[in-house]
Simulated scan of single mutants.
Amino acid sequence: MAPAVTAQYLRAAAAALRAAAAGARATGRDWAAEESALAVGVAGGPAAGVARLAETSPAVNETAAQMTAVASVLDVSASLHERLIGWEGPLAHLADAFGEVLDRRCAEEVTALCTPPAGPPGRRLGDLGGLSPDAVHELQLTENPRLAPLFDGGEARLLEAGPDGVVAVVGDLDSAETTLTFVAGVGSSRPESWPGYLGRARELNQATGAATVMWLGYRAPATLTGAVAREPAANGAADLRTFQAALAARNPGQRRVVLGHSYGSVVASRAARDPHPPLEADALVLVGSPGVDAKNAGELSLAGAGGVHAITSKADPIGLTVDDRAGVHGRDPTSPGFGARVWHAGRGVDHSGYWEDPVTLAALAAITRGPGDSTGVYAPRGST
């Protein structure tokens, strides 16, 4: 009996991927040429839109390289399948079993190429419970001197660092009434993006008054195409749960809020899927989400009673990837049947514009302060 996946099929898939990679590279060259043409003498309009897209969409060439690498894996698998087909005599009955194993290993290799897990941090916050935030910062910088320029002259404190991520806090981690853990999305594992995310943590700290953690503690998808994968969210969710547990152990009486943006909302909601134990958070906020892998908010387990909150602007194109029933990563958390408390964003806010939007920031401040705060704009989606 032939293996489950034929060598011919694998080679055809590899050829298709290589063709798609070549097309992606050509598209990238076209985009670069168009961007250069638009940028000449134009301060706003289309050029500004292209620049914004370039900021939020990683380079096409990386996607093309990923496609080419996967094609190579498929070619190797095809060669091994061809050897299996040639087995005769006493070994023939084993071909099926080996074919299934080969298919599984091929799938695992492809997954590893597209969604490799992050390397673990050298020291987790939970291992340093006896140290002040300043001492944790100095110890982490001693062991990760490459990160020193990121913190030069700033008030942020480094809490964890690994080969693929960084965790830092703006505000006093131990004396603040609330900690707000911000989980970022696609492209956030790029070191060149970290100053921008640290700036976002400062903005959230100023808007909410909470000690704001920039949690980039997982290997985020590098590309928008890679963001359809669920493995990075699963890997990140486990590490986020560990970090939140460390916060709870450090300051048991502190209020904790987890905020996930874009793919970060997939990570954050995945972290709340396991009720044993529940995620150490009083409230969960999902902003610009491509979907939640849950039937409703009741399937998300939090240690506190602050509930699940959702914000998606009508102008955010992420809304095209998700609806009331399903989406790239599950249901739209702003849909009426999901059961989250839905807050408005300001008019015209795009996918990366929430952090400059006073309406969104007021909502986040109200959520962070907890039940009973009426600041911010709350209403079912679509009412304005």
Rank of each mutant, 00 (worst) to 15 (best):
A211R: 00
L361I: 09
D293Y: 07
P380R: 08
R200C: 09
T181P: 03
V169T: 08
A26K: 04
F182R: 10
L91G: 11
G154M: 00
A281E: 06
T27H: 11
V285W: 10
A248K: 05
P116W: 11
N144A: 14
G291K: 07
R347D: 00
A340V: 04
R190D: 15
G185R: 01
E138R: 12
T375Y: 04
E299A: 14
A249T: 12
A69W: 00
Q66N: 10
N235Q: 02
A362F: 06
A7K: 03
K295D: 14
G199D: 06
S188Y: 03
E88H: 14
S352I: 12
E192M: 13
D134L: 08
L284P: 02
D323Y: 00
D316M: 06
S57M: 15
R25F: 09
P117L: 03
I85E: 13
P46R: 01
R25E: 12
N144H: 06
A2Y: 09
V349K: 05
L158K: 07
E155V: 12
A43N: 07
D316G: 07
P46D: 06
F98C: 14
A78L: 01
A13L: 09
G288A: 14
W194H: 07
A201G: 15
R369E: 09
G304H: 05
G89T: 05
D323L: 10
P278Q: 10
K314Y: 08
P380G: 05
Q206R: 14
V60F: 04
G153A: 13
T111W: 04
A13Y: 01
A37E: 13
D293Q: 05
A362T: 01
G99D: 00
P317G: 09
L131W: 07
N205I: 05
L38G: 13
A201D: 06
H261L: 10
R25K: 06
E356N: 08
E108R: 05
G253S: 03
N205E: 15
H93G: 09
V308H: 03
W194F: 00
P290G: 07
L147I: 09
A297S: 04
T179Q: 12
V60H: 01
A297I: 01
P380C: 06
D373W: 02
A345V: 00
A249F: 12
S57W: 14
L141V: 02
R230S: 11
V166P: 00
G346F: 00
G330E: 04
G339M: 07
A7S: 08
S189K: 10
A229H: 04
R83L: 11
P277M: 02
R104H: 10
V101P: 05
T384M: 14
S383L: 12
A37S: 09
R29I: 13
S77W: 02
V50I: 14
V285F: 04
N235L: 13
D172M: 02
R25V: 15
P317E: 05
G330Q: 01
A345T: 09
D75P: 03
G339W: 01
R18S: 15
D357W: 04
T111I: 06
H81C: 13
A24W: 02
T368V: 10
A92W: 04
A48I: 04
P58T: 15
